[in-house]
Amino acid sequence: MNLRLTNKQINIIEKANPFLIVSTIVAFTFGLYFSLLQSPPDYIQGDSMRIMYIHVPSAWFALMAYTILAGSSVLWFITRNPIFSIIARSIAQIGMIFTLISLVTGSIWGKPTWGVWWVWDARLTSMLLLFFLYLAYIFLWQSITNKDLASKISAALAIVGFVNIPIIKFSVDWWNTLHQPATISKLSSPSIDISMMVPLFIMTLATFLFLITVFFIRLRIEILDNKILRIREVK
């Protein structure tokens, strides 16, 4: 399978690794300093608001990763360039982990703030569903041995799943207005003050750098797998 990545691009991906790791660690250090020490506790929520600094970036990237996954699947269908199939597969595990993190940290944040560990509102239910969409996508790749076939089926499912998310969100929203008129809007963060923007921004940046780091590592795994396969074929 010809990956159609130029050697220069592969070189960049490889060489970037130490730089990415270092900058991720630096960014998280600054992020932690600002989140835990430098920023003031919220007037209402107190210190528990600090969880927002890890919950919100995780949720954002969980959704962004799935958009990349679905978008990459669409591009794969159009161009049949294998790099898109690889991008989709590489981002899947990362997205799944961030969805899990956002669900868990959200739940932990919810308990002291709103009194409940979980509530079946539109956002949370959609996030839970998103977790299962990732899971299904990953399992599908593992269960189909013919890799070519696997790309096609996973891509189709990724796109169907992507369409399903807004449907679910809309449905649960609609259902909730019927059954629970006063729903707590869980992700409505406290009115963003500049002192909260800074830690949020830094943590988002740090999480993004982390995501790129792991994503590049996974890309390299695919590239090497491909290389090894071709060497073994030649033999």
Binding site: D47, L100, I101, W109, K111, P112, F210
Partner: peptide
């Protein structure tokens, strides 16, 4: 952490342990 210690530290702990494992 103003009394919220178990919540904040478990959340931050989960976050960092998970991403380190992922890496």
């Amino acid at each position: 952490m103003g009394g919220y210690a178990p919540f904040i530290w478990s959340a931050y702990g989960f976050f960092f342990i998970t991403i380190i494992i992922l890496f």
